[in-house]
């Protein structure tokens, strides 16, 4: 009788030991966890020291990060018109980097505007977004393209958080190239 109980106990022990290791929604145990997780703040971590409870904080208002160029045109119809008429690309022949502009356009714009800028991106073809204009039908300048990437317009949202200032201008450069090709 005692033997049977030991047997059952042994089998149960093994069974429990195995199933408990198999939960995919939980991370594995760590050896010396203080070596894995340091006291330094992780990006996107929770942080009770700040009012909004997050590690990542917005830059202090009025400060400019190194390499960043402030954008002074307001997000309004007047700002759009002003940017359209006045704003010029600061890129030189050297920083234009048309290949990078093309790659960035492929990532951030082509999904709606289409690889050729004809408004036939994958999302349009799948009827998720409709009415994306062909670049050739719109009277746009480098200033207005930059302004729209910066703030968005109508249904298009701002893409300023996804691209740096220089990258935005490189995309503008590519959009103009596409528009010129379409107008031919």
């Amino acid at each position: 009788m005692r033997n049977t109980i030991t047997k059952i106990a042994a089998i149960l022990f093994v069974a429990i030991a195995f199933t408990s290791c198999n939960d995919k929604t939980k991370p594995q145990v760590q050896f010396m966890p203080d070596m894995y997780t340091s006291v330094a703040y992780e990006p996107y971590g929770v942080n009770t020291a700040f009012a909004n409870g997050m590690d990542s904080q917005s830059p202090v208002e009025g400060t400019i990060a190194r390499g960043q160029v402030p954008y002074d045109y307001p997000n309004s119809n007047e700002g759009y018109d002003a940017a359209k008429n006045e704003l010029k690309s600061p890129l030189t022949e050297y920083t234009k980097n048309s290949e990078k502009g093309k790659a960035l356009y492929g990532i951030y714009c082509a999904v709606c505007h289409g690889k050729k800028g004809d408004g036939q991106g994958d999302l349009v073809k799948r009827e998720k977004f409709l009415g994306i204009p062909n670049y050739k039908d719109r009277d746009i300048t480098e200033g207005s393209i930059y302004h729209v990437i910066m703030y968005g317009r109508n249904l298009m949202g701002s893409h300023a958080s996804q691209l740096t200032g220089e990258e935005r201008w490189q995309v503008v450069n590519h959009v103009q190239k596409l528009r010129n090709d379409l107008l031919k």
């Binding site: 929604t25 145990v29 760590q30 990532i107």
Partner: peptide
């Protein structure tokens, strides 16, 4: 120990990469 291959936690929003990156081909 410390190897989390296959780790699949439950996320607060059931965001489907299949729909976004797969079907809709968003980069």
């Amino acid at each position: 120990i410390g190897v989390d291959q296959g780790y699949q936690p439950v996320q607060p929003i059931a965001f489907s990469h299949r729909i976004h990156a797969g079907d809709n081909k968003i980069d």
